[in-house]
Design a protein around this nucleic acid. Structure first.
Length: 881
DNA sequence: CACTCCCGCCAATTA
DNA sequence: TAATTGGCGGGAGTG
């Protein structure tokens, strides 16, 4: 601390600048340090002020290796840091900028500055949310501690929590492996499931947490106690089997963290008060609850909460109960994945996705995106696991061979998705945690897909048909789609895309394609949609309340995908509803959350994908959908999702351009259509593509004119994509027949719209976005190529697309680019796709600039702190603005 | 005063 | 035995 003082005095100014000082400090530090044993001395002080710079110096001195690492890290930081955004506004650009921060903080290291939350942010800033699979980042505790200028003990606190969520795994002594959030959704899902088993009764049964508390008190012991640790462990480390030795570790922060998260996931309100959590946790551990224990537990919970807050998974709120006001935390992370998917899933059995695979896939994809290697590393994650295994135990590996295959195929998609997510998240994340963070998760998607699958396939097509006469195939497609419903089978089958030659539709391998939704706003509206009605009923409020325009705007902005769903009459309503719900969501737990009632799955998704699905269901569903819809879960989900979306979106945001578009769209018959393809079961990680329905609008192309087709989104399962080429036939005259690869489906879809429109261009754009897919090998069917696979689809498309879109895609290298592209497309259509926006973004092609704007707005509004990357994207994409 | 939660002692584990 | 992990709770900072 003494050191700090000095640093304060003099160094307060940005530290970085002056290495010299640092060096000096070093010398000093040892002396000063004497107090603490060895380690402490070196690093402690310097850090505080200019954590990074000083630390680095110190570190470098300490070991060359560290230096190198640090350098590397630094390089990354700017890009990766998006996370930071959440917290410190200033930080956004560079974490590195400690200097900036320092200025504020320099003055004195107040306690806040030393907070675990802040420390965690710094920590997280050093690593990408969605690291490319290729490189594993290893984390050296000593190094990090020195860099961050804290004692190791603190790093343990952070790492333990992160580990509980599988964001990192311990490889060896002092060595941790950074995984990022690729598996987060999966992990959360697991936790949710586990939580339901353990706490479900309590949480669910009780309307309010308060009640829960009471109940907990009663039940705690019963339900929780024994199982707690074990299950948790398992959850936490699905991969790894339960920890071998439970000893102390079991009860530690790691477990507590998981349990704590479980409580959120199980809670309807998504709000958990500290005292309740403490009680529950204590119970688990022990029956006797000493006051002291309680206090200790609460302390730990604060520690955990700080880390989770830094991750953007929860935020602090106050719950006012009868008793009084209590400190509590609200879950603002994704919620959907787990639950209900099962129901839907029935079909897609498999999907158990292996986190690993997903990861690998993602990584692969990314690489591919980069344009380089593709699949080079599936294993990366796997390897990671081993690490964990070493540490703890190895787990059984669920993975089956097929999964791997899928992985490959899917991986592409997944990667895209992952990339998109990252981008999105980054973008949004900074601004807003809640929605942003995990919008898509590979996992969730699958689940969604599942839902969708049943109803969707058929429904979708029909819808399309309704909307666009041109689509002759829809039916056929739908049939195909239905097949896919069974994931496993499909895979084997895959490869064969069903093509409908002239059809506007895309054909996916049965397995691959789940849903296609077309939303026609107006037109569709007219349609009788049983499902929609149902949906609407469910969320009647929303429907009524939400002004269409608004929704559209949002949708356009945010995500095409969501919007797309909206397109359909119902969807819009839903969206609206969602919005409403979302908006209302307030700290107060009870109220809104309740709405989402069960949204079991819904919430989380965050993923646009999920949304899509839902929407799709609704829309598509009309026929089948209704049935599906009937399923309670689905509905709620939809609602929730919508809500989420809505949340994400700000109604206000309206990007001018987008708005226009959206309006136009609204006016126009556009129908956003989504195509959702689900990967085979194996995919658990899914891929989805969205085509932006928005595209039409977004594109500005004449999209407005073109209203006829807009295929908002296409989601394709990775597998589908990869293995099967999707075929899109040009709906209309324009024959797009060419089929984009699965990956492209989105593109293809867009194309349709485009084609129909005549202004193929926009569509193409989307395609371009798709381009990334090319990464994937697509076995395909399509002639398309790697280079511009999607483009090939239609001649027209090819031209425009290839030329234009592709180029834009150039950006591809980074996910960011992709996003932008997507964004562009999105704008117009969907009324609200709040969340979806993300998705949209993905899908959106550069061409549709308008959308990007929307995005920007959305994100920008939402997140002030868009990460640098985000900004970049936005900027580039947003040019329109 | 209550809420947070930093800090670091010191025990359990591990190398 | 030394080092690493990490439980734990005193007590300080904040409002």
């Amino acid at each position: 601390e003494n050191i700090f003082d000095r640093s304060r005095m003099a160094p307060k100014t940005p530290i970085k600048n002056e290495p010299v000082d640092l060096s000096k400090q070093k010398g000093c530090t040892p002396e000063t340090n004497p107090i603490t044993p060895v380690k402490i001395i070196d690093r402690p002080q310097p850090d505080p002020w200019t954590p990074t710079a000083n630390l680095k110096i110190l570190v470098s001195a300490a070991s060359p290796d560290m230096r190198d690492r640090e350098k590397k890290k630094e390089l990354f930081r700017p890009i990766e840091n998006s996370e930071q955004s959440d917290t410190p506004d200033s930080l956004q650009y560079d974490i590195v900028d400690d200097s900036t921060v320092d200025e504020f903080e320099k003055q004195r290291p107040s306690r806040k500055q030393k907070s675990l939350g802040l420390l965690c942010q710094k920590f997280l800033a050093r690593y990408p949310n969605y690291p490319l699979s290729t490189e594993k980042t290893t984390i050296s505790l000593d190094e990090v501690a020195s860099i961050l200028g804290v004692e190791r003990r603190r790093i343990y606190d952070i790492v333990n929590v992160l580990e509980s969520l599988h964001l990192v795994s311990r490889v060896a002594k002092n060595q941790y492996c950074w995984h990022g959030r690729h598996n987060l959704s999966q992990t959360l899902k697991m936790l949710q499931e586990a939580g339901e088993l353990q706490y479900g009764d309590l949480m669910t049964s009780q309307p309010k947490e308060q009640d829960l508390e009471y109940k907990f008190g009663e039940r705690k012991k019963e339900t929780v106690p024994d199982s707690l640790d074990r299950p948790l462990l398992e959850f936490s480390e699905p991969d790894c089997i339960s920890a071998s030795a439970n000893s102390r570790k079991d009860k530690s922060l790691r477990i507590m963290s998981q349990k704590f998260v479980m409580l959120f996931l199980v809670s309807k309100t998504k709000i958990v008060t500290l005292d309740i959590a403490a009680k529950i946790l204590i119970e688990e551990t022990q029956d006797t609850v000493d006051h002291s224990k309680f206090k200790t537990k609460v302390r730990r919970l604060y520690d955990i909460a700080n880390v989770l807050t830094s991750l953007g998974l929860i935020k602090k709120v106050h719950v006012t109960e009868e008793r009084g006001r209590k400190p509590a935390f609200k879950w603002i992370g994704p919620v959907e994945f787990p639950e209900k998917t099962d129901e839907l899933r029935g079909h897609s059995p498999t999907s158990d996705p292996l986190p690993e695979t997903q990861r690998g896939a993602c990584a692969q994809y990314q690489t591919s995106a980069t344009g380089k290697q593709r699949f080079t590393r599936h294993s990366s994650f796997n390897s990671a696991q081993p690490c964990e295994a070493t540490r703890r135990k190895v787990s059984s590996e669920p993975n089956s061979p097929h999964q791997e295959r899928q992985d490959e195929n899917c991986s592409k998609m997944i990667n895209l998705a992952a990339v998109c997510r990252q981008k999105i998240e980054e973008d949004t994340g900074s601004a807003k945690n809640s929605d942003i963070n995990l919008p898509f998760s590979l996992l969730p998607v699958p689940g969604d897909s599942d839902f969708c699958v049943n109803p969707l396939p058929q429904a979708v097509f029909p819808v399309v048909q309704t909307d666009v006469p041109s689509f002759s195939l829809p039916v056929g497609i739908s049939s195909q789609a239905s097949h896919p419903s069974t994931p496993a089978a499909s895979k084997t089958e895959n490869g064969k895309p069903t093509l409908v030659p002239n059809q506007p539709f895309l054909c996916f391998p049965s397995s691959s394609l789940f849903m296609l939704c077309g939303g026609l706003q107006e037109n569709n509206l007219s349609k009788p949609l049983p499902t929609a009605g149902d949906l609407a009923n469910r969320c009647p409020e929303a429907q009524a309340a939400v002004p269409p325009t608004v929704c559209q705007k949002r949708s356009s902005h945010k995500c095409s995908s969501p919007s797309a769903p909206v397109d359909d009459e119902e969807p819009a309503a839903k969206k609206q509803t969602l919005e409403h719900s979302d908006l209302p969501l307030s700290l107060v737990v009870s109220k809104k959350p309740s709405e989402s009632p069960k949204a079991e799955s819904s919430p989380g998704r965050g993923c646009s994908a999920a949304v899509h699905l839902e929407t799709n269901h609704l829309d598509l569903a009309s026929p089948a959908a209704t049935e599906v819809a009937n399923k309670e879960p689905t509905k709620p989900l939809d609602c929730q999702e919508q809500e989420k979306r809505s949340q994400n979106k700000d109604p206000d945001e309206p990007s001018p351009g987008n708005e226009h578009i959206s309006k136009d769209n609204a006016n126009q018959p556009f129908q956003p259509q989504y195509l959702y393809v689900q990967p085979t079961a194996g995919l658990s990680s899914f891929n989805f593509l969205f085509s932006a329905n928005q595209a039409p609008g977004a594109v500005s192309l004449a999209a407005n004119q073109l209203p006829s087709l807009s295929v908002p989104c296409v989601m394709v399962p990775s597998t589908a994509l990869a293995s099967f080429p999707l075929v899109c036939s040009p709906p209309f005259t324009s024959p797009l027949s060419p089929v984009p690869d699965g990956s492209f489906s989105a593109a293809a879809s867009t194309n349709f719209s485009m084609s129909s429109l005549a202004s193929a261009t926009p569509v193409f754009i989307s395609t371009t976005a798709v381009v990334t897919p090319k990464v994937s090998p697509a076995p395909s069917v399509d002639p398309q190529q790697p280079a511009h696979p999607a483009l090939h689809l239609s001649p027209v498309l090819t031209r425009s697309c290839s030329a234009v879109k592709l180029d834009s895609p150039v950006c591809m290298g980074h996910p960011v680019t992709l996003l932008k592209l997507q964004q562009a497309s999105s704008a117009p259509l969907t009324p609200k796709s709040i969340r979806p926006a993300h998705h949209e973004a993905f899908f959106k092609t550069p061409g549709s600039l308008g959308d990007p704007v929307a995005w920007k707005k959305n994100e920008g509004n939402q997140t002030r702190n868009a990460s640098s990357v985000q900004r970049r994207l936005e900027i580039s994409s947003t040019s329109p603005d």
